[in-house]
Design a protein around this nucleic acid. Structure first.
Lengths: 117, 117
DNA sequence: TCGTTATTTAACCTTTGGGTTAAGAGACCC
DNA sequence: GGGTCTCTTAACCCAAAGGTTAAATAACGA
């Protein structure tokens, strides 16, 4: 479905959301912990997580009072296939990927919302 | 750069723009010809082309009074690499890609902006 | 030079997106 | 039960996105 791609690409268009996905690549996380490194309210992060969930990029499971966020990389499959139709891109160049992570992981979040002090 | 990815993914999030890219996969086209199959104004298409150009996904070259639009698939490379970091996706499954094209090419544009008569 | 074709700019409108704060709902602990 | 922790909902704000029509620009063809 075309609107699935809409949602996936739109979700990926935000640097905060991409950073969240990169964090979840390491491990499942609770909402509060996801929010911790960002310079924005928990509510904002909660909304971002809602967008990611709607796009199918993560799933959220509530256990007790904490809601666990889990990466669902399969949601990227269709988008990836779509893009590959435009050209043969590297067979998983992990080095290049690492560089992206460097520029998008929590540490780099200050770059996203530049604020001194 | 993180904002490059912002622009690329944001550009891809719109079905009209993805349809345009799919059209350009076949051949370079003039702005008017790109606009022809869509049920929206030429101005709107011109703006979409501006977004695609800003994202680097196409280039536009003016020859005489017509501006030619050309696909620049390399712009997808970084985005593709980013996504592949989340999983090994099919080594270019062209069948799957064809299906996407079917659902996004001009004929399917009515599905995008559903309007009878 | 004049009308036509190709495209953009300007001005506008409405919806969506990303953020805020304040209040609410559940689950936990004592 | 009362306080606390986790997360969402509600109400709001502002900027950006996607569309419109009307007017401007620029190249062509006669």
């Amino acid at each position: 479905m075309s609107q699935d791609l809409d949602q996936v690409f739109a979700a990926l268009a935000d640097p905060t959301r991409r950073a969240i996905l990169a964090m979840l690549l390491e491990d499942d996380m609770a909402v509060t912990d996801v929010a911790e490194p960002f310079e924005m309210s928990l509510v904002a992060i909660s909304k971002h997580l809602g967008v990611l969930t709607a796009a199918g990029l993560i799933s959220q499971e509530k256990r007790g009072r904490v809601k666990w966020c889990k990466l669902e990389p399969d949601a990227l499959r269709d988008a990836s296939i779509w893009m590959q139709g435009f050209g043969q891109f590297e067979p998983v160049n992990l080095d290049a990927f690492e560089r992206f992570l460097q520029s998008e992981l929590p540490d780099a979040v200050e770059g996203v919302t530049p604020q001194r002090e």
